[in-house]
Design a protein around this nucleic acid. Structure first.
Length: 271
DNA sequence: AGTGCGGCCTGTCCGC
DNA sequence: TGCGGACAGGCCGCAC
């Protein structure tokens, strides 16, 4: 499942192949994603040159002079750079074929992803305008988290997974960051001290940065057609480790459901 | 306004 | 071995 680090690694992987390249044509093989891919999109982006490739939360933004292509990978989406004539596989939804013969291909079995086009500046798009700060930015800091959390009755795990609070912290890294910060996932967000929020902000940045760093070294070549899409799994301390021993103290990791999401924590290390 | 949850999908896993 | 059902998971959009 692509979390922010995978999306960032994808961004870095595809950028050199697409930047300053022009679109030959768009092929929509299966419109069915979270929202149907617009048929008009093919006309909008044809002949445009990709001038920027950015990331906002887990959204990838391919900028042109006429507008921006917004891509979200959902939970099973992957992007690869391939020759345009590469064999099409099941669940290949979308091709952005470039004039240099390279192709950006979106593969998404569970169809939770999205491909959208906007003529406006992307930050004003409905899906992006309400997003909180980037977790790796300076705006995301102790004071910000502390201030936003006051009066909140919500548990801390769902609070940090709220995209309006901070964008891009998914289920895996929410659990991992709380473990690193020593905070119980069920703790009320409004009752956590500023000191502990300092630790939490730092922990969120640390786990995401470590995963991005590892992505850079373990990721498969984005231009290869065989093998895995290229996602990687960092060594995780708590996520998916119910009933296993805590890497720090040996206590059995526990699992509970918060906001309909599996959550993992060490009952000894996290209070 | 804050909060919780339904729904979209299919590969994988589990039990019979 | 084959089959059916439960489940995971991002996150919008609605209901309260």
């Amino acid at each position: 499942m692509p979390e922010l680090p995978e999306v960032e690694t994808t961004r870095r992987g595809i950028s050199p192949h697409l930047l300053n390249q022009s679109v030959q044509q768009v092929i929509i093989r299966n419109r069915n994603l979270r929202w149907p891919i617009s048929r008009q999109l093919a006309n909008d982006i044809k002949d445009q040159t990709i001038t920027s490739i950015e990331r906002r939360g887990k959204y990838l933004l391919l900028g042109t002079d006429k507008g921006t292509l917004i891509i979200h990978l959902g939970m099973s989406g992957s992007l690869r750079i391939l020759p345009c004539d590469e064999e099409v596989k099941k669940h290949d939804h979308f091709d952005l074929q470039m004039k240099n013969g390279q192709c950006l291909r979106l593969h998404d079995p569970r169809r939770f992803g999205a491909v959208l086009w906007t003529r406006k500046s992307p930050e004003t798009h409905k899906l992006l305008s309400a997003l909180g700060p980037e977790p790796l930015s300076e705006q995301f800091n102790t004071e910000y988290l502390f201030n936003r959390s006051r009066q909140r009755k919500q548990v801390i795990k769902t609070f940090i997974m709220d995209s309006k609070i901070v964008t891009g912290v998914g289920n895996i890294y929410a659990s991992e960051a709380l473990f690193l910060a020593g905070i119980h996932p069920k703790h009320a967000a409004g009752r956590i001290s500023q000191t502990r929020y300092a630790k939490l902000a730092e922990s969120i940045k640390t786990v995401l940065e470590a995963a991005i760093e590892q992505g850079g070294t373990t990721l498969k070549d984005f231009t290869q057609s065989d093998g895995k899409p290229g996602y990687f799994k960092q060594q995780l301390n708590v996520y998916g480790r119910a009933d296993e021993s805590c890497t720090s103290c040996g206590t059995k990791i526990k699992q509970l459901t918060l906001g309909q999401r599996a959550s993992y924590f060490c009952p000894h290390c996290q209070k």
